[in-house]
Design a binder for these strands. Structure first.
Lengths: 156, 156
DNA sequence: CTCGTTGCAAAGGATTTGCACAAGT
DNA sequence: ACTTGTGCAAATCCTTTGCAACGAG
């Protein structure tokens, strides 16, 4: 049972995805996707900020509502993935190089991890519950090395 | 390397946790904790609804703001855990019987899974990054058996 | 030309916060 | 009595939506 859904060549670059669905390739959609890819991972707000920065002083950046709409679209197309993190801040990342997110609950730092880490768990859930884990959406929270050390040092 | 932080006896029933910090044991706090425990897992909204239901017609339920404040407090005290799920809906559950959440992205169904499932992953992250995974906050999203089947049946 | 898209502005929903009063110790 | 906690209501924050103008195919 192959099909790891990880083939780089299998996912055409936006334009094809759009055309095949009768959707249109717009400047905004390209820019949003580029911003998501440029940012290792970012919230809709951060992505909007990046777009504004990229646009420069005179240029116009896509509207906030467009960013949201586009993010949702790209997600449906499978070109980006989002992961709910702490509070109201879903983090988006490009689907090109899949990875897990590991988030420190103390300092908020986000680290990326090889998705292969979850292979065992995924297999087991599949066998056990028939549940197909979506590795692109996994976020593990906990405490990073630095914060662990800091906490341990307080009362040795 | 012991200390699984899972001893039932090690976590005193709210009252002690509060007293030891100079905080007060109030009716509301007890009720919110009870509601969280009663619901297998629920959003702040659902917990509020449950409280209103428990209060009955004439009775007064804790205010929404109190629910939020209390949930945050209980979380700090380690008596409940919250997991960010889909959109802006953190799910709270009592810390007493730890479990992972497995969420179907299609139908939204939540299933609880034995935390032991992640032991391997946790060890590896610890060794690799010095990252200590918080198993109470893990949510895995994907597709459940039913939705998988439904999707497969559409175009066979 | 014909729709899908975008910008703008306003609507919504979910949390959070300031305060004066009520309640626990 | 001394503080901490609660209810109420207003303030925020993040997202979503309606609609007329715009642009890709």
């Amino acid at each position: 049972m192959p099909d790891h859904t990880h083939d780089p060549q299998q996912a055409p670059p936006l334009a094809d995805q759009l055309r095949s669905r009768g959707l249109r390739l717009t400047n905004q959609r390209q820019r949003v996707l580029a911003a998501v890819a440029a940012l290792e991972h970012g919230t809709p707000e951060e992505i909007g900020a990046r777009l504004r920065a990229d646009a420069g002083p005179g240029g116009a950046a896509p509207d906030t509502s467009t960013v949201y709409r586009t993010l949702e679209l790209l997600d449906r197309l499978g070109l980006v993935w989002h992961t709910p993190l702490g509070k109201g801040a879903p983090v988006y990342h490009a689907a090109e190089h899949p990875h897990l997110h590991v988030v420190c609950a103390t300092c908020g730092k986000i680290e990326s991890v090889d998705p292969g880490l979850m292979d065992g768990v995924a297999e087991r859930l599949g066998a056990d519950l028939g549940f197909r884990v979506d590795v692109g959406h996994v976020a593990l929270s906990g405490t990073c090395r630095d914060c662990s050390a800091a906490a341990g040092t307080e009362s040795p």
